[in-house]
Design a protein around this nucleic acid. Structure first.
Length: 606
DNA sequence: GTTAGGG
DNA sequence: CCCTAAC
C-alpha cells in the first residue's frame, strides 16, 4: 500500500511537488533524476514516520495535479498508484516539431498530422500493479533503509549519504540505461524496431523515453518504474521540514545532473536556468528559497493559464477570422482532433511559452491493450479517476475488457460518454464499433417508466450524472454561424412534471439540486438546470392560461398536455412561495427533508 | 458546484 | 435545451 507517482517529462516533477506542497504529502524520491520518474506519496507524521497516503489524500493530490498540466489517475486500486502523465507535447513534443519543421513547409496538413500523431503518441502507463509491492526487485541494495517507505525516517545526514551512493545505481537500474550509450542513429534503429517506423526526432532523451515506453507498454511490465521507485525509498532526509525534500539533490550526483541538463538543453531550454540554480544552491539552507522560487514559477504558469479567461463561446467564432489571417491554421475543437501545425511560430518565442503553448492542444494516443489500436483524443478528455472495478478487470484481463472499458471512458468525449447503461457488456459491444447506437436509448427513454429501469441499471454501479445524460437523442442544430451544436431533447412526461411539482412543494423552488437529488434520482438525464427551466415554463403556463380555469389544455400541443390540476398546483406553490420574502440566508443548507413548512416557506424566485 | 436568466 | 454570469 503505497502511493506512487510516475512523472514523465522532466519538468513535471516540479508541478507534482508544488501540488504536493498544498497537501500533506511529500515525495519520497528525488526528482529530476531521470525520466520517467516514479515518486512515492507518503505523509509525514508528527513523529517523523512516513505513512502511505490514504485514498482521500491521493484524491486530493490528484485534484491538485489536475489543475496543473498533468493528467493524473489512479492506476491500481490496491497500490494507490497515482500516475502523472505529462502530455508529451511540451517536454518531448517540441523536438520533433523542430525536426519536422523543414518538412512541414512542403508537406500538407495531413502529413503533419501523421507525423505529429506519430511523435506525440503516448502510451498508457502500464505495470501499475507491479509497482505496489516489490521492494524486492531492488537489486541495488545499498544502505540500510532502502526498503520500507513506511519506516521511520533516519537521520538526515546518513540518509543523504545513502542517497548519493544510491543514485548512480538508480540510473543504472533505470530501464533506459541501456539506451544511454547509443548514438542517435542507433536509437533511431531501436525506435524503428520498436515502433515499426522511422523517426526524425533528434532528441536523444525523447527517443530513449519513447523506446522505453514502447517496450514497457508492449510487455506490460514496467521494470523501469519499479526499480526507480525502490531506490527512492531511502532518500527522505529532511522530510520533516515538510517541504520539498528533494531540492538540490540532483546536484549531489554529478552524473545525473549532467544528463538532466543535457535533456534540458534539448527539450526546454528554459529549464536550464532553473536547474542550474537549483543545483548551485546549498540544499539545507536554501530550501525555503528554492521552494518559493519554484512555487512562484508554478504560480506564474498557473496564472498564465488562467489569465486568458475569454469564456465566451463565440470567441471561437471570432478566431475564425483570425485563422484566415494565419493562413489555414487549424482551429481546434473537441470535434475535430486538434492537430497543431508544426509551422507555428513557437520557436520564435521563449521556450517556456512555447512549452505551454504546446500543451494547449495535444494528440494523445492511448494504446489499447497491446493490440496497437490507438485513438486520438484531446488532452484531458477524461480526468476522473478510473473506476475500481474497471481497474480490477484490467488486472486480470490486461488486454481484454478492462482495457477496453478504460479506453472507452478515456477516449470518448466526456459529455457524451456512452456508458449510460452502466452495463459493461454494452460497453464492450459498443466500443468495437466506436459508434454506439443512440437509437436504442431513444426508444427506451420514450417508454417513460424509466424510474424503474434506469434506476435499476445504474444503481448498482455508480451514478455518473454527466455521463448518463447522453443516452437521449442527439440532434445537431445548425447554428447561425454555420457551426452545429448538439441538442438533446427529451420531452417532459407527466410523471416527471408531477415529480417536479412535488419536489418543489417539498423542498422549495430554487433548490433544484436538492430536488434533483432527492426526487429525480432515477431520472439521470434531468439536470437541476432542467428542473429549473421546466419549473419556469410551468409557472408561465400556469399563470398564463386559465388563472381560474383548470381544465384547459392546449390541444395544439399533444406532446405536452399538462393537466390542469398540476398547473393549479404549480400556481399554488408559486403564490405560496412568493409570499414569503427571500429570507433565511444563514441556514442555507439546513432543512432538506425534515421540515416541510420551512421548505414550503422558501421563496420561489420564479 | 449551483442557481438565475437570457437566448 | 444551451450558455453564462453570479454566487
Amino acid at each position: 500500500m503505497e502511493a506512487v507517482v510516475e512523472v514523465q517529462g522532466s519538468d513535471e516533477g516540479k508541478f507534482v511537488e508544488t501540488a504536493l506542497e498544498k497537501s500533506n504529502l511529500v515525495l519520497s524520491s528525488p526528482r529530476h533524476v531521470a525520466d520517467p520518474v516514479v515518486y512515492k506519496l507518503v505523509r509525514v507524521e508528527g513523529d517523523g514516520r512516513l505513512v502511505p497516503a490514504t485514498d482521500d489524500e491521493l484524491m486530493e493530490v490528484e485534484g491538485l495535479l489536475e489543475n496543473e498540466k498533468c493528467e493524473t489517475h489512479i492506476v491500481a486500486d490496491t497500490g494507490h498508484a497515482l500516475v502523472c502523465t505529462s502530455n508529451e507535447a511540451s517536454s518531448s513534443g517540441m523536438p520533433q516539431l523542430e525536426s519536422s519543421e523543414g518538412l512541414s513547409q512542403s508537406e500538407n496538413t495531413e502529413a503533419d498530422t501523421a507525423k505529429l500523431s506519430a511523435c506525440l503518441e503516448e502510451m498508457v502507463p502500464s505495470g501499475a500493479q507491479s509497482l505496489s509491492d516489490d521492494h524486492v526487485t531492488q537489486s541495488v541494495s545499498v544502505v540500510e533503509g532502502s526498503k520500507p517507505l513506511d519506516g521511520p525516517i533516519e537521520g538526515g545526514s546518513s540518509t543523504s549519504a545513502s542517497c548519493i551512493s544510491l543514485k548512480p545505481d538508480f540510473s543504472k537500474l533505470k530501464g533506459e540505461i541501456c539506451l544511454d550509450n547509443l548514438s542517435i542513429k542507433e536509437l533511431h534503429e531501436v525506435f524503428k524496431a520498436t515502433f515499426g517506423r522511422d523517426t526524425t526526432v533528434k532528441d536523444k532523451q525523447w527517443l530513449k523515453r519513447r523506446i522505453a515506453m514502447g517496450l514497457t507498454n508492449s510487455c506490460d511490465v514496467s521494470t523501469t518504474t519499479i526499480v526507480i521507485k525502490d531506490n527512492k525509498l531511502v532518500k527522505k532526509g529532511k522530510v520533516d521540514s515538510s517541504n520539498n525534500v528533494d531540492l538540490g539533490t540532483g546536484k549531489e550526483h554529478p552524473a545525473i545532473g549532467v544528463e538532466y541538463h543535457e535533456v534540458s538543453l534539448n527539450n526546454h531550454g528554459i529549464q536550464i536556468d532553473e536547474h542550474q540554480t537549483t543545483s548551485g544552491t546549498r540544499l539545507e539552507n536554501n530550501d525555503l528559497e528554492n521552494n518559493c522560487a519554484i512555487e512562484d514559477l508554478a504560480v506564474d504558469q498557473r496564472a498564465a493559464k488562467r489569465v486568458r479567461k475569454p469564456t465566451k463561446r463565440y470567441i471561437e467564432e471570432l478566431s475564425e477570422a483570425k485563422s484566415k489571417e494565419d493562413g489555414g491554421r487549424l482551429i481546434t475543437s473537441t470535434k475535430n482532433i486538434g492537430i497543431r501545425p508544426s509551422v507555428l511560430k513557437s520557436h520564435a518565442r521563449p521556450a517556456r511559452n512555447a512549452s505551454l503553448e504546446g500543451r494547449t492542444v495535444i494528440i494523445r494516443l492511448d494504446s489499447l491493450g497491446g493490440s496497437g489500436i490507438q485513438v486520438p483524443c484531446v488532452y484531458r478528455v477524461r480526468r476522473s479517476r478510473p473506476r475500481k472495478n474497471v481497474m480490477a478487470l484490467l488486472k486480470y484481463h490486461p488486454s481484454d475488457m478492462g482495457m477496453t472499458a478504460t479506453f472507452v471512458r478515456k477516449g470518448l468525449d466526456v459529455r457524451s460518454s456512452q456508458m449510460d447503461n452502466g452495463s459493461l457488456n454494452k460497453v464492450l459491444e459498443a466500443n468495437s464499433t466506436s459508434e454506439q447506437t443512440p437509437q436504442q436509448f431513444v426508444t427506451e427513454s420514450k417508454k417513460e417508466k424509466p424510474s424503474a429501469e434506469l434506476g435499476q441499471n445504474m444503481a448498482p454501479k455508480y451514478v455518473d450524472p454527466s455521463g448518463d445524460t447522453s443516452d437521449d437523442k442527439v440532434v445537431t442544430v445548425p447554428t447561425a454561424k454555420g457551426g452545429t451544436r448538439r441538442k438533446h431533447h427529451r420531452a417532459w412526461t407527466l410523471s416527471e412534471v408531477m415529480k417536479l411539482v412535488e419536489g418543489v412543494s417539498k423542498y422549495g423552488a430554487g433548490r433544484w439540486s436538492e430536488i434533483k437529488r432527492l426526487a429525480f434520482a432515477s431520472y439521470s438525464y434531468r439536470t437541476s438546470v432542467d428542473l429549473k427551466d421546466k419549473w419556469r415554463n410551468l409557472l408561465k403556463a400556469s399563470f398564463a392560461q386559465t388563472p381560474a380555469d383548470k381544465g384547459v389544455n392546449s390541444r395544439k400541443h399533444p406532446s405536452m398536455p399538462i393537466p390542469a390540476p398540476i398547473l393549479l398546483r404549480v400556481r399554488e406553490l408559486a403564490e405560496m412561495q412568493a409570499q414569503v420574502p427571500p429570507p433565511n440566508l444563514g441556514v442555507t443548507k439546513q432543512a432538506v427533508c425534515d421540515d416541510r413548512s420551512v421548505n414550503e416557506a422558501r421563496p420561489g424566485y420564479l
